[in-house]
């Protein structure tokens, strides 16, 4: 029974991972791709690992899986922030659909890169 629940949670997680991959293909510019690619996958990975911990509860691997989830939650935002910041710093433009770019406006106003 626990195995079944674990497998279902893993399946839901992999659906989120798939949607993240689809997002990378469909989004128009680097920032939106980053939104889909690095972060729609956060929940996917968490669910995937949680499903593993549930389904294989006879082995005592759940503390390690908990640590893994913890590290994903800590490192994922930092890496995507670093990528996005670098992309904006070297001047990759936003897609034409974009409504506003307050950062570029402020940079132009101060005459320097923040």
């Amino acid at each position: 029974m626990l195995m079944l629940i674990g497998s279902l949670i893993t399946l839901i997680g992999s659906i989120f991972l798939f949607l993240g991959a689809l997002g990378i293909l469909r989004m128009p510019d680097v920032y939106n791709r980053m939104q889909a690619g690095t972060k729609a996958t956060t929940l996917g990975t968490i669910l995937f690992l949680a499903g593993l911990a549930l389904g294989y509860s006879h082995c005592t691997c759940w503390p390690r899986i908990l640590t893994l989830i913890l590290f994903i939650v800590f490192t994922n935002p930092i890496s995507s922030h670093a990528l996005a910041r670098a992309a904006h710093h070297i001047g990759i433009n936003l897609t034409e659909k974009s409504v506003t770019d307050k950062l570029a406006e402020d940079e132009a106003e101060n005459g320097e890169k923040l």
Binding site: F16, Q35, A40, T42, K97, V99, K102
Partner: peptide
């Protein structure tokens, strides 16, 4: 928000409205 973004991705028209705000 994961569900919200997933909904955006599977819609054929891709109704995004991106921008950088302060």
């Amino acid at each position: 928000s994961n569900i919200a973004v997933a909904k955006l991705v599977i819609q054929p028209t891709l109704p995004i409205n991106p921008g950088i705000v302060k």
